[in-house]
Amino acid sequence: MKSLMRLFRSEPNIAEPLYAQVVAKARAPHWYVEGRVPDTMEGRFSVLATLLALTDLRLEQGGEVATKASVALAECFVHDMDSQLRQDGVGDPVMGKRVGSLVGALGGRVGAWRRAIGGEESWDAVAGRSLYRGEVPSDAALAHSLDELKRFWHALQGRGDEALISGVLP
């Protein structure tokens, strides 16, 4: 009976507090006002995926618990995207394809930001694609977003694994 109970018990995802904080950061008005990211579903997704990519890269640099949290963070993202799409009326026949596409977009950002952090590509170029899909509205908007992304990245690096996983963000 105990094994049957475990089958139906849902363990909490260790990355839920961190995911919630990244979502809160992505909702900050400055991205859409000063940064001029389009305040649309796609624009909000772009900010969230960008911040998640940077967070994932920081978790990759951590210890074993951080590595596990990286996987858990992706699971939070998939669950959230699934829920959002269902709320928007997307049905089961296309759900997997749509969520897969969003996960792929996140993965592409992780790769691009890995190159930027490694110095193989400029932060400007990656931010232009990651936030604006290559259509940067102005130099001032890009400068604002770059400053915020660099601040976010440096703050992530300044957090210990446990603090970061528990959702303590700048």
Rank of each mutant, 00 (worst) to 15 (best):
M5K: 14
M5H: 13
M5N: 12
R6D: 14
L7R: 13
L7Y: 09
F8Q: 08
R9P: 00
S10L: 13
E11K: 14
E11G: 08
N13F: 09
I14V: 13
I14S: 09
A15M: 01
A15L: 05
A15Q: 02
A15G: 01
E16R: 15
E16K: 15
P17W: 03
A20R: 12
A20Y: 04
A20I: 02
A20C: 07
Q21F: 05
V22E: 01
V22P: 00
V23A: 09
A24W: 05
K25I: 05
P29Y: 13
Y32V: 06
Y32K: 07
V33H: 12
E34P: 00
R36G: 04
V37P: 01
P38G: 08
D39G: 10
D39R: 14
T40Q: 09
T40P: 02
E42W: 10
F45N: 10
F45M: 07
S46T: 04
S46D: 13
V47P: 01
L48Y: 06
L48P: 03
A49K: 03
A49I: 04
L52A: 04
L52C: 06
L54R: 04
L54D: 00
T55Q: 00
L57Y: 03
L57W: 01
Q61D: 08
Q61H: 06
E64R: 13
A69P: 02
S70I: 03
A72C: 07
E75L: 09
E75C: 02
C76V: 01
F77W: 07
F77Q: 01
V78E: 07
H79G: 12
D80R: 14
D80N: 10
D82W: 07
Q84L: 12
Q87T: 11
D88Y: 13
G89T: 12
G89Y: 05
G91W: 09
G91E: 12
P93Y: 11
V94N: 06
G96H: 07
K97A: 14
K97T: 14
K97M: 11
R98S: 07
V99C: 08
G100D: 02
G100Q: 02
S101F: 11
L102V: 04
L102P: 03
V103P: 00
G104W: 03
A105M: 08
A105C: 02
G107P: 04
G108P: 05
G108M: 03
A112C: 08
W113V: 03
A116F: 06
I117E: 04
G119R: 04
E120P: 02
E121R: 15
S122K: 10
W123L: 12
W123Q: 05
D124Y: 08
A125E: 12
V126A: 07
A127S: 11
A127F: 03
R129L: 09
R129N: 08
R129M: 11
L131A: 03
L131N: 00
L131C: 01
Y132C: 01
R133I: 05
E135L: 11
P137D: 08
P137E: 07
D139Q: 14
A140T: 11
A140N: 11
A141K: 06
L142A: 13
L142D: 02
L142Y: 09
L142Q: 13
A143S: 15
A143H: 06
H144F: 14
S145I: 06
L146F: 09
E148A: 15
L156V: 10
Q157K: 15
D161H: 08
E162R: 12
E162K: 14
E162A: 15
E162Y: 11
S166R: 15
S166L: 07
G167T: 05
G167N: 03
G167K: 06
V168M: 09
V168F: 07
V168T: 10
